[in-house]
Write a protein that binds this DNA or RNA. Structure first.
Length: 417
DNA sequence: TCTGGGGTCCTAGGACCC
DNA sequence: TCTGGGGTCCTAGGACCC
């Protein structure tokens, strides 16, 4: 088999710069929700030493001294650009596995001129969407990921299919950069004298499986060129759906937190229906401000199994409202909350009841609700429990968010002549 | 003043069954 | 001296990914 990994460079930052020419060639970071920390950096921002996840308030100085630019996250825009790249990939290869918002594996088996194919594809993505990208090729997913990392160092396309190319590529490849090796395992491997991908590949398999388990043993096999995973073109059903947010400020009003939870629950149930699933249980949590340890801390969480699985927002809201009774305490300020839907299942696989259908709720009503919101925009028809169209105290802070250029007519980019 | 929001898989241990 | 041999299910925790 031959795998290719196509990965957008500095994806969020690059997408911002596609539509705002003034951002090109500048140090730019995209901030997380609430403008909290850096989640994407342009090449120029990386050169300034800005780290992934670095808090925004630590970057103030660079704004003044080096003209650093900051943008609030605009996931609507990034998601749409991601879909455009995906359409090009599906056109180029019969088997595509979207892996994240900016990465996909594609099956290159049977392609003779791999490098030529990849270079052509890379250019096409760039020309048709504006998204700069790199392509790594290898006989396993792990090697394609490694090749992609090498491609980002300059060449744009790297093929690790040949054993000679592979040996050279893995010899000075830090083991912590291998896909599946996180900071913990990197430290543990280094302590054992294993510092490069080549060293991990050549280590004793008994040592690896004994000290780290089967997960890293698979990674080792993949580094040796034996595929342990194939392309999965259809996404497996989700096991859980979570919607959670940090609030723009600390919130002491319990009713406001209840509205936030209802809003998250409605959003989660919408995602549930998009996936064609039902939920069997609901879980809620809230956190006080963990970054202020001197303040009183309270981190409650509760779950409940639903009487019958459902995809109806009303049933989920009822469960959340039951769970919420006595959930919060006076004297605490809450900074974050969330809702998760658990025990997800396809309705056709549920065991029916002797007297009632297996699924609670009204699918037709929910389909109508979703259709209205799809056509007229999110939030056109919602539930009162969410505090619909109020300006909530818990809303996210997003000081500098770009327009949704590709998904809202009113926000289309205009070109001056 | 100020620190994201999602996911997955594996393993160990405890409770319980016969 | 010496204390079976299977199982299942659930949960918590730890690791990883973007």
């Amino acid at each position: 088999m031959t795998f290719a990994l196509v990965d957008g460079n500095n994806f969020y930052a690059s997408v911002e710069a596609i539509f705002q020419i003034a951002l090109r060639g500048k140090p730019l970071v995209v901030l997380s929700n609430n403008d909290g920390c850096a989640i994407a950096r342009s090449a120029e921002a990386k050169a300034l030493g800005i780290k992934m996840g670095q808090p925004a308030h630590e970057l103030r100085g660079l704004v003044r001294s080096h003209g650093l630019l900051m943008r609030s996250a605009n996931f609507t825009l990034y998601g749409d650009m991601s879909a455009r790249v995906l359409a090009i990939l599906r056109d180029a290869s019969p088997r595509v596995e979207p892996y994240s918002i900016d990465e996909s594996f594609i099956d290159l088996s049977g392609v003779r001129d791999r490098i030529g194919f990849a270079k052509e594809l890379r250019d096409r993505i760039r020309r048709w969407t504006g998204v700069p990208n790199c392509i790594g090729i290898g006989p396993t997913k792990t090697l394609a990921k490694a090749a992609n990392k090498l491609a980002k160092r300059g060449p744009g396309v790297v093929d690790l299919t040949d054993t000679a190319a592979r040996s050279a590529g893995l010899a000075d490849f830090a083991v912590g950069d291998v896909w599946g090796v996180g900071p913990r395992w990197e430290a543990k491997l280094n302590a054992l004298g294993i510092e490069t991908a080549a060293a991990l590949r050549d280590a004793s398999p008994e040592l690896i499986v004994g000290r780290f388990g089967v997960v890293l043993a698979r990674t080792q096999r993949e580094l040796q060129g034996y595929p342990c995973a194939g392309i999965e073109p259809t996404e497996p059903d989700r096991q859980q759906i979570m919607v959670s947010r940090s609030f723009g400020e600390r919130v002491t009003d319990h009713a406001a937190v209840a509205e936030a939870l209802a809003t998250f629950a409605a959003r989660a149930t919408e995602k549930l229906r998009n996936g064609g699933l039902t939920a069997g249980a609901v879980w809620i949590f809230a956190n006080s401000d963990v970054f202020r340890p001197e303040l009183p801390q309270h981190h409650p969480s509760r779950a409940v199994t639903l009487p019958r699985p459902t995809m109806d927002t009303r049933g989920v809201l009822q469960a959340v409202s039951l769970l919420f009774r006595g959930f919060l305490r006076d004297g605490y300020a809450y900074k974050r909350a969330g809702v998760a839907l658990l025990d997800l299942a396809r309705p056709e696989r549920l065991q029916p009841d002797m007297f009632r259908s297996a699924v609670a709720g009204d699918p037709a009503l929910m389909a109508t609700l979703d259709a209205i919101n799809r056509r007229f925009g999110r939030g056109t028809a919602e539930f009162a429990a969410t505090g619909w169209r109020t300006n909530p105290v818990w809303a996210m802070r997003q000081r500098n968010v770009s327009p949704r250029y590709t998904t809202r007519w009113a926000e289309l980019p205009s070109v001056a002549c």
